[in-house]
Computed example of a mutant assay.
Amino acid sequence: MSTLRAGYHHGDLRAACLAAALSLLEEGDEGDLSLRAVARRAGVSPTAPYRHYPDKDALLAALAIHGYRELRAELLAADSAAAEGDEYVAMAQAYVAYAVAHPALFRLMFDHACTRSHPETTAASAAVTEVLAARVAAAVPAAQRPAFMIGCWALVHGLGSLLLNGKLTPNGPDEVAELTRAVVATMLGSSALRL
């Protein structure tokens, strides 16, 4: 039996390659990631990943899309589980927690050129933004929404980046959540949090 045929016993070669790529990404960085390394990790022939990912940029874009979809799901879950009036803080905490839990993927999502050149990646990124936009639309005047959205994103993304780069060193997820809450409350004020 060929290696390629054995690889298809995963049931879903695309998903198996994506899982292998995620694993490799979290162990190193995107510079070390290759389709051959993904094939080895997934247990398929060196050419098998090319059936779904024609080149490394396509694989990286798929990873970014996966990350954006996960992040969107985390934001929606945080929004729906939050007490009334705490929705924005909960979404900010979910965003920062995602960054801290998935540092290599988070950096890829926002820093790699492939995330700006693939239409599906752009759409997945926009779907994340729409989660906050829906909440903001209910409370912020239309003329102020674009600036408010940019400010909110800069706040939580900057906080996540500072944590990833070791500029802030809280001890564990609870301290990260509390730091996020305190920063958001301080910067936006309690009235702005009633989104």
Rank of each mutant, 00 (worst) to 15 (best):
A90G: 01
L33M: 05
R36T: 11
G189Y: 10
T122K: 14
P170T: 03
L24K: 04
L76P: 03
V96M: 07
N171H: 10
Y68P: 00
P119V: 10
L163T: 08
A6S: 10
L162M: 15
G28I: 01
S80K: 10
R14Y: 09
Y68A: 09
P146M: 09
E178W: 02
L71G: 02
L132K: 12
L63S: 02
L168H: 08
M187E: 11
S80M: 10
L155V: 09
T47M: 13
V184C: 06
M91P: 00
R40K: 12
A15C: 01
Q93G: 08
A78H: 04
R40P: 00
P46E: 09
R135I: 03
A83Y: 06
R72D: 09
T180C: 02
P173W: 00
G31D: 14
H10W: 02
H66W: 04
A20E: 11
R135F: 07
D79Y: 08
D174I: 04
L179D: 11
L179I: 04
G172V: 05
G160Q: 02
Q144W: 04
F106V: 00
E26P: 00
T180Y: 01
A185G: 04
L24C: 08
A78W: 01
S190D: 13
S125C: 11
R41D: 05
A99M: 09
A97P: 00
L22K: 03
E26Y: 07
V89S: 06
V89R: 06
L24Q: 07
V96Q: 10
E26M: 03
G7Y: 05
H157F: 11
L155E: 13
G7S: 09
A177N: 06
P170G: 05
A61G: 06
F106I: 01
T3P: 01
G43R: 06
T129M: 13
L76T: 13
A83R: 15
T122P: 00
R145T: 04
T3K: 14
V156M: 10
